[in-house]
Write a protein that binds this DNA or RNA. Structure first.
Lengths: 121, 121
DNA sequence: CCAACCGTACTATGTTGGATAGTACAGTTA
DNA sequence: TAACTGTACTATCCAACATAGTACGGTTGG
């Protein structure tokens, strides 16, 4: 739950946060209806400004990963669609990458090896 | 040779240029020792500032894609290693993406289908 | 030789996005 | 009621990006 924020990273802090939290939602580390840390407490934990946290939380809500209740908190959304949505995104990314790879002369079997090898540890 | 620059894109212009030129070098559209457009002429063509072009050219040289000769021009480097280097980058990207995909429950065969399907048009 | 190119190196300026700081308000809850 | 929660502002600072303008030295063809 203590997400990794890299101040030297080129990416904006709020964007790093969004990615990290999305990842935990998708992978199931965060359960549906589970409450996220409050804007203020997470800001203190990570030593960044509450406004930055709020920006990340707003983004998460816009993208459909969470819902917020004023006075109560922000919670993980129980949406079946999120996983499928993300799955399609990943497959699109894969298509783009495969296209690039083929332009570079990487063969199908080279890529298939990578797939079969990944996660065999 | 007339590279695509999108002013509405979030990415910096110089970065878009670097990517576009790198792509043409790797794919062989630009041959070794071929001269790139001059800083000033390309700036005029693309309607952007010469300094922005120079920044892109400097970046290309730092990354080992080109070499520059004051008074003569900027040229495509004849380095065999560039292609292999890029190939390794792509394979690393593929590994990362496959890892994400598996976390999402995407199966090997789903990904292999994408690979075999891409480029069959 | 020299005009017209080439890359390169500055300074100055304006804009934008990211992040911070501070304040305020309304809803919730023990 | 006190202490939380999300939310909404405004103001300010800073870095990156892009532009504008000027200048210097190397190269080359006429």
């Amino acid at each position: 739950m203590s997400w990794n924020i890299d101040f030297r990273d080129k990416r904006p802090l709020y964007e790093q946060l969004v990615s990290a939290i999305e990842g935990d939602i998708i992978s199931g580390v965060l359960s549906p209806d589970e409450m996220l840390p409050s804007v203020r407490s997470l800001a203190t934990d990570l030593s960044i400004n509450p406004n930055t946290i709020q920006k990340a939380y707003r983004q998460l809500e816009i993208e459909g990963y969470t819902y917020s209740v004023p006075g109560r908190g922000s919670f993980v959304k129980n949406s079946e669609g999120v996983r499928d949505m993300k799955k399609k995104e990943i497959l699109q990314d894969l298509m783009d990458l495969v296209k690039k790879a083929k332009e570079l002369g990487i063969t199908d079997s080279e890529m298939i090896d990578v797939i079969k090898e990944e996660g065999k540890k």
